[in-house]
Every structure is written in C-alpha cells, then in structure tokens.
C-alpha cells in the first residue's frame, strides 16, 4: 500500500468518524425535539412537583442538552445504552437477543444473494442486449421501482399461497431441527434477497460494462479474443474493485428491507423491537436502535469507499 493510498483511507475513516458524531447528534436532537417533560409523562398520575424534580435529577434532565448529549454519546462508546422508559430494563439487555436474530437474517441473506446476484450481473454483462439480459434487467428494475413490502407480499403469494412450499409466517423462537430452521428462515430470506439482489445485479452489470468500454478491452477484441474470454480475463479482474464496492453498497439496502420484512413475517429482530418502541415512544430504545442501524449503514458505506480507494490501480505504486 502506497503512502497516498494509506493517507486517503485514513482520511476516509476520519470522515466516517466525524459523520458518526454528526449523525448521533442529529438522532439525539430529533428524539429530544418533543415538547413536554419526560419525567412528568413517566410519572403520570403520581406527578407531584417533588417527584418530578427528583426524577428529573435522577435522569439528568435538568442539565443542558449539550451535556446530556455528551453523556449519552459517552455511554454509547462504552456500551451503556440507558434504561427503557417503558419496562425499566437496560436497553442493552433488550437489544442483544434481537440484534443476534437480525444479524442472522442478514448473514443468511448475504450468503444467498451475493453469489446469485454476482453471477446474474456478470452473465447479463457478458450477453448484454440479449434476451437473457433484457429479462434480468427488466425484472431488477421492476423490483427496484416497487415498495419493499410488495416484493415481500409477492414472495408470500407465490411460495406460500400458490405453491404452498413454505409457511407464510415465521417464528424464530422454536427452532430445534435443520428442516425447521429452513422453514423459518426461507420466506424472510427469499423476500430480502429479492430486494437487495436487484440493486446488486444492476450495479455489477454496470461495473462490468464500464470496464468493457476501456481501450484494453477494445484491443483484446481486435486481437480476436472471444466474448467470454474478454469479459473473464480482461474486464472482470479490473472490475473486481467496482463490483466489491457495488456489493457493499447494495448490502446497505438490507436495512430498509430488514425493517419491512421483519414486520411482515413477524420476525423477532431489531427492527420489530424498534417499531414497538416507536409505538410506545420509548426514546432510549429508539435512540439505541437507530444508532445501531446508522452505524451498520455507515460501516457498509465506509467499506465500499475504502474498497474503491484500495482497488484504484492508479494509487498503487
């Protein structure tokens, strides 16, 4: 790794860190925008002035907002996410199990969709403008331009209602055997895979076609190399950076998809927890869930950018 490259990567990481601070400030500011006193709301009927004052002090609500923000941010870094306003449990305890479930869903989806999407994307770049390419491109554009919940409901209709291969709802709590696991994960994973594969196919195809427009590919064409040899030997190695970038970027779409898919299939993951928290206005829980989502999104975008920097041969000296 050259010095310029290291410097650029470090700069990118620094920008990500600053972004994280800014984003946490935005999340904190929005969740504190609500007029009204949390202490008073929490105490409800028992809100005597003394009790309210006591609770305000215990929750540090009497401090200026910026101090509370710094305290909260400091807590985030050491894993102290505060306590839920609704059931008085530590937020980190409520989140840990759910986070595991969501990560499992994301991991299985990634393992399934990345190879399939890459194959389809590269294949449609090789045979571009053929009927295969047209079908794949049209389908992926169609999936992108409809809401995520429609993709999920469509998957349920096809696989659970008409074909009756899979159950329509899943409950990840009662997994004891492999076949059961398959049945639980199948629907959410299939639905989620459709959502992110569409993006990945389009971006992979664009990345490969982009390298096909370069002079060295034209040279290979003039030498009389076959179409698949041009793509596999000349274009693909040079497109690996952009493709890895495309994969990381598409995976950031997992997030929006996860929120919808977990809702449809009643999957006990993090976004289900967050939606329930929105319904009960449990701010510490909402803040923590939002920060976990933002952090993973930021992480994926940063990885994508770092890959783009590292894979740029002009910086490799």
């Amino acid at each position: 790794m050259s010095n310029t490259m290291t410097a650029m990567v470090l700069h990118r990481l620094w920008v990500s860190f600053l972004t994280f601070i800014f984003v946490s400030f935005v999340v904190f500011a929005i969740t504190n925008m609500l007029p009204g006193d949390i202490a008073e709301i929490m105490l409800g009927q028992a809100a005597t002035p003394e009790a309210v004052a006591g609770l305000r002090e215990a929750m540090h609500l009497d401090e200026p907002a910026i101090l509370r923000f710094l305290r909260w941010l400091g807590g985030l870094f050491v894993g102290d996410l505060g306590t839920s306003l609704v059931n008085r449990l530590p937020v980190s305890e409520m989140i840990s199990g759910r986070l595991g479930n969501s990560l499992k869903l994301a991991a299985v989806t990634t393992l399934l969709s990345v190879p399939v999407a890459l194959l389809l994307g590269i294949a449609s770049a090789i045979w571009r403008n053929s009927w295969f390419d047209r079908v794949v491109s049209t389908l992926s554009i169609a999936v992108i331009s409809v809401p995520e919940f429609m993709v999920a409901t469509g998957a349920v209709l096809v696989f659970a209602v008409y074909l009756q291969w899979l159950p329509a709802l899943s409950f990840a709590n009662e997994v004891t055997s492999f076949t059961q696991m398959l049945r639980v994960y199948a629907m959410p994973v299939v639905a989620l895979s459709f959502v992110i594969s569409a993006q990945m196919i389009r971006m992979t195809r664009a990345a490969v076609i982009d390298t096909l427009r370069t002079p060295y590919v034209e040279m290979a064409l003039l030498k009389g190399a076959s179409r698949s040899r041009i793509v596999l030997r000349h274009a693909l190695p040079n497109a690996l950076g952009p493709i890895a970038n495309a994969v990381a970027l598409s995976l950031s779409y997992l997030l929006g998809g996860v929120i919808i898919v977990e809702t449809i299939f009643n999957y006990p993951g993090l976004s289900k927890l967050m939606l329930d928290a929105v319904a009960t206005r449990d701010m510490p829980l909402i803040q923590s869930c939002a920060m976990i989502f933002c952090l993973s999104y930021l992480l994926l975008i940063t990885i994508a950018d770092v890959i783009a920097i590292v894979s740029n041969p002009r910086l490799r000296k």
């Binding site: 800014f22 950031s252 929006g256 929120i259 939002a290 933002c294 999104y297 975008i301």
Partner: peptide, 8 residues
Amino acid sequence: LGCVPNLL
C-alpha cells in the same frame, strides 16, 4: 445527513 438511511 445522507448517511442516515431514509426510512430510519
């Protein structure tokens, strides 16, 4: 701000 997912 673009680093906060829209739905979120």
